[in-house]
């Protein structure tokens, strides 16, 4: 089994959702990223989504846009990302690592070259924001050829017919983008997430992770009652931004948030509902 499947099997056994954390590679510098990833993993994060910085992050809100700019200002390059991944894999043999980003940085050297580098670096899966199933040939084929997961996104605009298209070729887990919008701004209501999860679970056995707009332990716990995974991105990235602005070490804030989210998610299904 893959690391991703193993992780979801483990969290299911523990009757909890997996905590999935996103940060951007190279934010605030390529040298700082490994320690930040350790802070996440050591404090309860189950799966890492490592963002590949891009000049034109058109699906991201202000927090992650700025993270991309900080990473690029620090001259984070293509090689740095795979170096970070390779070293992460040595330190954390079991934690799934997913590369998340946009089509051009993933495909400009050719999809075979990218998927080979990803496999060699010990990456488990790829999420590409702007390659929908219609353009799968540009990346998905090469990713699956290497035995990696091509993780697809479903959204509030995905009806039943669309879900079928999305799931064809999807593996690892399904990432449910809970709001029609950019990252980090509004949050969907618990009711709308619940009904979406019902619709999706009716048509797939893949684990379903929910993301976009989940910032606080309370929000995470609410989502974690039903979802197989909870993705938190902008809130972690905001910790980094805040620390950089005040010239502080971002690790302390990251550790604190990871701990709180992890604890909230662990207890989410054990609370007695009144």
């Amino acid at each position: 089994m893959s690391r991703i499947a193993d992780t979801f099997a483990k969290t299911k056994k523990e009757n909890r959702a997996a905590l999935i954390a996103f940060i951007t590679a190279g934010d605030p510098t390529p040298d700082a990223t490994p320690r930040l990833l350790d802070s996440l993993v050591d404090n309860g994060v189950d799966i890492i989504e490592l963002g590949m910085p891009f000049s034109d992050p058109m699906a991201d809100g202000p927090a992650i846009q700025k993270a991309n700019l900080r990473a690029l200002a620090a001259k984070t390059n293509y090689g740095d990302i795979f170096k970070i991944a390779t070293e992460f894999r040595k330190r954390h043999p079991e934690t799934p690592l997913i590369l998340m980003g946009y089509a051009n940085p993933m495909t400009f050297k050719g999809s075979d070259s990218f998927s080979k580098s990803a496999e060699e670096a010990g990456v488990d899966g790829v999420i590409c924001v702007d390659i929908p199933p219609e353009e799968d040939a540009s990346l998905g084929v090469a990713i699956r050829d290497k035995g990696l997961d091509m993780i697809r996104l479903a959204t509030p605009t995905s009806d039943e017919a669309r879900l079928k298209v999305i799931l064809n070729g999807a593996s690892g887990f399904l990432y449910y983008v809970s709001v029609a919008g950019v990252t980090g701004l509004q949050q969907a209501t618990e009711a709308s997430i619940d009904s979406a999860l019902d619709r999706i679970k009716a048509v797939t056995d893949l684990p379903v992770a929910v993301g976009f707009g989940i910032r606080s332990p309370e929000q995470a716990a609410a989502v974690a009652k039903k979802a197989d995974g909870v993705v938190v991105g902008s809130a972690f990235v905001a910790c980094i931004e805040n620390a950089v602005t005040h010239n502080q070490d971002p690790n302390a804030a990251l550790e604190k948030l990871a701990k709180e989210l992890s604890s909230a998610i662990s207890h989410a299904r054990k609370e007695i509902r009144v």
Binding site: M58, E135, V177
Partner: peptide, 20 residues
Amino acid sequence: AGGHFGTFGGQYVPETLMPI
């Protein structure tokens, strides 16, 4: 039918926009 001019064009957008 998918909007390809040879190897160019296509529909490289976030999933939220695909239905629209």
